[in-house]
Simulated scan of single mutants.
Amino acid sequence: MTINFQLGRPAADARIVVAMSGGVDSSVVAALAAKTGAEVIGVTLQLYDHGEAVKRSGSCCAGQDIYDAKTVCDRLGIAHYVLDYESRFRTGVIDRFADEYAQGRTPVPCSLCNQGVKFTDLIGFARDLGADCLATGHYVRRVEREGSVEMWKGRDPARDQSYFLYGTTRDQLDYLRFPLGDLPKSETRRLAVEAGLVVADKPDSQDICFVPDGDYAGLVKRLRPETAAPGQIVDLEGRVLGEHQGVVHFTIGQRRGIEIGGQPEPLYVVRIEPEEQKLVVGPRRALAVAAARVEGINWLAENQVEVEAKVRSLAKPVKGSWDGERLTFAAPEYGVAPGQSAVFYDGDRLLGGGTIVATEAAVIDEAVAA
C-alpha cells in the first residue's frame, strides 16, 4: 500500500518525522513513510523514569516500547531518537490528572497529553529537524478542502480518536499527517505483518498509559493523600445515608461502591464536594443534564450554533446548540461531568471542543423516569 503524505515536493527531497510509541499503529506509519522514498526519522518520547518504565506493561512510551520502536526503525533502516520528557509529562499530565480528581472532576488525560508533549513539543522538534511533516498513528483523517485543512473522524468508528484531538490547532493540523485514518485496525496489522515488524501482534496500549493496571485511585492517593480521607454520603436533601472511604474512589455517575441498602431506587454519585469530603447521591434521573458550560474552546472549523456533541470518548454524539458559552442538549444527557471534554462535530467533521466546567440539571418527571 502506498500513502500520499502530501509533502508538497518530491519525496526524494523530503523528510518525514514519525511519532513512534512502540505500538503497531505508529510502527506501520513509519513503514508507510519509508515506502515513499523520503528520509524518515522515528522519534519516541520517554515519559517515565528508566527504572519505572522497564517494569511497565500495557502502556506506551515505556521501556519495552522504546526498545520495540528502535527495533522497528532498525528493520526499516531509518534513524531513531528518544526524547526524555519524563519531567514535562509528570507536571503537564500526571499532576494535572491528580489535581482534577482531587477537585471531584473527571479528567481526560489523553487530551492533555496530545495538546502538550505529543503535539506541541514533537512538532517543535520535527520543525527543528527541517521535516516537511510530523506523522502519527492516530485514527483520524486530515482533509484538504476548499483551501483549508480539516480534521474528520477516522473512517472506522471503532477506532476513531478525534475526541482526544480537539485541542489540535489549525497550524498544527497543517503540519500533521494521519496515514491510518482510512484504515480498519485489521488492515494496519496486516501491513505490519507484510513489513515484517515485530510488533504486528502486539496488544493495544491502555487508554491512560500511566495507569496500566487501571488503579486510578491508587495513583491519585499516592500523589494527593487527602483524597483518601473518609467522609459522609448524603442524599439530595442533605440527609446522611452512610460513609465512604475517600472521594478518590468515585466519579459522577458511578453506582459501584456506594453500598447503601434499603433504598427504593439504586443510588448514583450526583455530585462530589471534595473540600468537605462529601458524596451527594441520588436516583439515576438526578444525573440528567440539560446544559453544560464549556471553557477553553479550540475551534478547528467555524463556530456553529447547531452541533453534534460528544461528552465521553465511548458515547455517541448527540444533538445540541452552542451559544458561545453553554452547550444545551436537545434531550437530557446522562453521564456528563466537569472535567470531561465536550467535542463538537458536523457529521464526521470535527469542529472543535473544550472542557466542561459546570452542568445544569434537567428536570425529569419521576413518573416518566420510572
Rank of each mutant, 00 (worst) to 15 (best):
M1A: 15
T2R: 15
I3Q: 07
N4K: 09
F5P: 01
L7T: 06
L7Q: 06
R9E: 12
V17S: 01
S21T: 08
V24W: 05
D25G: 11
S27L: 12
S27Q: 10
A30H: 04
L32D: 09
A33I: 04
A33K: 01
E39N: 06
G42E: 05
L45S: 02
Q46I: 09
L47S: 05
Y48H: 15
D49V: 13
H50T: 14
S57N: 14
S59R: 12
S59W: 15
C60D: 14
C60I: 14
C61R: 03
A62P: 02
K70R: 13
R75Y: 08
R75C: 14
L76M: 13
H80Y: 07
Y81H: 13
F89T: 00
R90E: 11
V93K: 00
D95T: 02
D95P: 00
D95Q: 09
F97A: 12
A98M: 00
D99R: 03
E100A: 15
G104R: 01
T106F: 11
P109R: 07
L112H: 01
C113S: 08
D121R: 02
I123G: 01
G130Y: 07
L134P: 00
Y139T: 06
V140E: 00
V143F: 13
E146I: 04
M151Y: 03
W152C: 01
R159H: 05
R159M: 15
S162E: 03
S162D: 04
Y166A: 08
T169Q: 11
T169D: 13
L173C: 04
L180H: 06
R189P: 04
L191D: 10
V193Y: 14
G196N: 10
L197G: 03
V199S: 10
K202Y: 09
K202N: 11
D213P: 09
D213N: 15
D213V: 14
G214M: 09
D215I: 12
D215V: 13
R222N: 11
P225A: 07
A228F: 01
A229D: 00
P230G: 08
L236Q: 11
E237G: 12
V240T: 13
V240D: 14
L241T: 09
G242D: 07
Q245F: 05
V248H: 00
R255P: 01
R256E: 13
G257R: 12
G257D: 14
I258L: 15
I260L: 15
G261S: 13
E265N: 11
E265D: 10
P266H: 10
V270S: 05
E275N: 05
E276D: 12
E276V: 03
K278I: 12
L279P: 03
V280R: 00
P283S: 13
V289E: 05
A292L: 07
A292Q: 04
I297W: 07
N298F: 02
L300R: 00
E302M: 07
E302P: 00
V307W: 07
V307F: 10
V307T: 06
A309F: 08
R312Q: 10
A315T: 03
K316T: 12
G324S: 05
R326Q: 09
A330T: 07
A331V: 12
P332V: 14
G335I: 04
V336E: 08
V336M: 10
A337R: 02
V343H: 00
F344A: 02
G354R: 01
T355P: 00
I356E: 05
I356A: 10
E360G: 08
V368G: 03
